[in-house]
Design a protein around this nucleic acid. Structure first.
Length: 521
DNA sequence: ATCGTCTCCATGGCACCCCT
DNA sequence: AGGGGTGCCATGGAGACGAT
């Protein structure tokens, strides 16, 4: 239309209507010439409010069917039904004629811009219907300098109306955002900043537009009835994957609509169910809520249906340990329980201890191995064996510790015994020497000294060097002192205060030595 | 390499309870 | 009655992981 020659436009695939964007970011249909006057009169009427203009243009505009191709499943349609009224395009009457645009599988051919073929091809190549929506950033007049960005943003905005909330964007958009810098208006792969409220005026009380995070206004909590119905539906469906959860969503929403309860998305229902399953142990009442018990029971049923079982690292280690142990003892692995023919860990060991299998049997054998290792009876046996092994190991360590302590005690007692014997020998020797010295006519002469050394030489109990000191006093008289290792050098002399050192000026009698040493081991 | 699913995390609103 | 605190819930973004 020549009225807006510089504005981007969009050709709807089913109706064939060309929508043009006005300077205020609103979209008007580029209708056939026959309908333009009536529509323009409505649009340009100053007496009508935006809501009135919107209402009056509805009969004029050939509304495209609010359907999508069969590639969009029911959940998305439900999502559309709940989101469309709150879409920014219809909110607050701000945008007068935002068309109810819907992307179909062939949407790429419906996008056209005369000056930006690249944008169209980009949208077609990346599957704009799955591209990451550029939420909260509608095209503004300032963005006119980059029409390519407008078209890309438009295509993404259009697709956002059908994207399930919280669903991960498809890989092309992600790959483009991560690996390709030439994506027009490609947002960073990092977490996006919150929606810029300055881009569009939105009532804070009704933040229902996409792009706003947070709970939708008016969304009530789950009550007991909701949870009970959810559990009953989940028990009936036993969902394993996303499609099954969509079936749960459908059933739940049918029930919700019939009872006046709020409808919820599959993700919300799944999250609620998993929350019930993984609920933590309460600190107050020790009784498990019935809903939690039911959820855990249903979870077990789902696991049985899927043929899976919860694993933890301990069990994996058990399997590995059992396999390793039995590999090391594969020659004698039949002596343990005498149940080699039963499925269980022995099956695992037989499989691994035998010759390598043919590769084509590897998958089946692996499955059999896993199944056998997960057998409850086998697990119980492994648990008992592991417990016994742990007890045996602990007992062995305890006995070793006791043995070390006993050896240490024995050594200490032996040292004490040796010390006592040495002291007894010294005392006996001293007593004998004193007895010799006190005999009449016996002095500290060479004969007694040699006899003493002979005694020391005969002693086999003295393990250390023992010295005998003979002292002659300057004023007459002499003394013989036996000095043991560790004894003070002047022991026995200082006590009497007679002398504490050798008298160097006194000539020694012949045959005497000032000090004689005898080493006795 | 691509795609789908699952999970975690951040954000924000609603519902409820308690206190003033 | 109103405000603050807390828990629950929804939403969106991103990464991890497995299947194809």
């Amino acid at each position: 239309m020549s009225d807006y020659p510089q504005q981007p436009f969009f050709i709807h695939p089913t109706s064939g209507i060309c929508y043009r964007q006005l300077a205020d970011s609103s979209w008007v249909p580029d209708l056939p010439q026959s309908q333009l006057p009536s529509l323009r009169s409505i649009l340009e009427s100053d007496t009508l409010t935006p809501d009135q203009r919107f209402a009056r243009t509805l009969p004029v505009l050939p509304m495209p069917a609010a359907t999508t191709t069969n590639s969009h499943h029911s959940s998305l349609e439900n999502d559309h039904d709940t989101r469309t009224p709150s879409h920014p395009s219809f909110e607050n009457g701000h945008n007068t004629l935002n068309p109810p645009l819907h992307i179909t599988s062939d949407h790429s051919t419906s996008l056209y811009h005369p000056t930006h073929e690249t944008a169209r091809s980009e949208a077609a190549a990346t599957g704009a219907g799955h591209a990451q929506p550029r939420r909260g950033t509608p095209a503004t007049p300032e963005d006119d300098s980059d029409d390519q960005a407008i078209m890309a943003g438009l295509s993404r905005e259009l697709a956002s109306a059908h994207q399930a909330g919280g669903s991960r964007p498809s890989a092309p958009a992600k790959a483009k955002a991560k690996g390709r810098a030439d994506v027009p208006q490609a947002s960073s792969s990092k977490r996006k900043a919150p929606h810029d409220a300055a881009d569009e005026p939105v009532d804070a009380k009704k933040r229902t537009a996409p792009g706003f995070k947070g709970r939708i206004a008016g969304a009530p909590n789950y009550n007991n009835t909701d949870v009970g119905e959810l559990l009953s539906i989940v028990r009936a469906v036993l969902p394993i994957g996303g499609r099954a959860w969509q079936e749960v969503e459908r059933l739940h929403n049918e029930w919700a609509e019939s009872t006046g309860r709020p409808t919820r998305s599959a993700k919300s229902l799944e999250a609620k169910f998993k929350q019930l399953v993984c609920i933590r142990k309460p600190t107050g009442s020790a009784e498990c809520p019935p809903h939690v018990e039911a959820a855990q029971e249903i979870e077990d049923l789902i696991n049985e249906k899927a043929g899976t079982r919860d694993l933890n690292d301990d069990e994996i280690v058990d399997i590995a340990d059992a396999s390793d142990d039995e590999n090391s003892n594969h020659n004698t692995n039949d002596k343990g329980k005498g149940k080699a023919s039963e499925p269980g860990p022995s099956t695992v060991s037989r499989g691994r201890s035998q010759a390598p299998r043919a590769p084509r049997h590897l998958g089946a054998d692996l499955l059999q191995t896993i199944s056998a290792s997960l057998d409850p009876q086998a697990r119980a046996e492994r648990e008992a064996e592991r417990t016994a092994c742990s007890l045996h190991t602990a007992h062995t360590l305890h006995l070793s510790s006791q043995l070390r302590e006993a050896n240490t005690t024995i050594n200490n007692l032996r040292n004490l015994l040796h010390e006592a014997e040495r002291r007894a020998d010294r005392l006996e020797l001293r007593a004998q020497v004193m007895a010799d010295l006190q005999q009449p006519g016996a002095g500290a002469g060479p004969s007694s000294f040699n006899r003493l050394n002979n005694i020391l030489s005969d002693s086999t109990n003295l393990e250390h060097t023992t010295r005998v000191r003979c002292v002659r006093y300057a004023d007459g008289g002499a003394a013989t002192v036996v000095i043991n290792p560790g004894d003070d050098e002047n022991q026995g002399l200082d006590d009497e205060g007679v002398m504490s050192s050798w008298d160097e000026g006194v000539p020694q009698p012949e045959g005497y030595e000032r000090e004689q040493e005898g080493d006795h081991e």
